[in-house]
Amino acid sequence: MPSVKDLRERIRSLKNTQQITKAMKQVAAAKIRRAEQAQKEARPYADTLSEMLRDLMASVGSVDHPFMKPGNASAPHGLILMTADKGLAGAFNSNIIRAGELYVRATPQVAWYTVGVKARNFVRRSGHPDHPTWVLNAPSKIEAAREVAHRVTDDFVAGKISNITLISPKLISMLSQKPETRALVPIARDAVAGGEQACPKGAVEFAPSPEAVLSRLLPKYLEFTIFSAMLETDAAFFAAQLLAMNNATDNAGKLIDELTIQMNNARQAAITKELLEIVGGAEALVNG
């Protein structure tokens, strides 16, 4: 049985750990609020952009844009893997990376693009040290998203990759985040046309022409899709970290309780033993 002193030591170190996890939990809670705010502020842009796209798609007959045509079939698949930069968020990053591994198992020829340090490290370790990569926590997320979008679409148009798929976390609720695999390019007409609103609102005039406006809208649409995926990754990461740190704090608390009981038992046992010795000694004196 460990001594009272050992137990006291362990309890103290556990309390320190608990303090750290509790602080990290509070930080995550504050950051998730900010991340959700950023997501909310991006929504008006998202709504308007998809509305414009719907109107346009309804007005143009056949679409002749490289993003909407199948790419070079013999080229590898383009895969954007998006994780957080940091860990300490439970299985958050490894879940996304596993989704990436599953994708690669089905399609052996993959050209990697990564966003987030954890994704970068994984892809580098798996033998692609020079793949294009960006950090998630860039000073300007929209700038970073634009760079990613430019790079992947340039490669697509140049025939270096046959399509573009994005694997990023989806924030289902505060308690649940799941990796989501989305095909970005070629853009499916249904994805942007939105079905239900098939007819444009009256005769719409375009400057310069519907096709020219569309050729500007589609790259913006992709940039923004990547941008909003980055915002969602941020929010999902902090939600996962909040949960992980909450669990860690609870677990530390449980351990502290258990060890405290053990320590009290050990102390009481020592006291009882000492008492017995004193009583025994006194009796020996009387009888002697």
Partner: peptide, 19 residues
């Protein structure tokens, strides 16, 4: 400033979408 030059839009303009 549209790709075609400056464009002034007043209320009740015809439906219009420009880059």
């Amino acid at each position: 400033v549209t790709t075609e030059g400056e464009e002034g839009i007043l209320p009740s303009h015809a439906p219009f979408l420009a880059a």
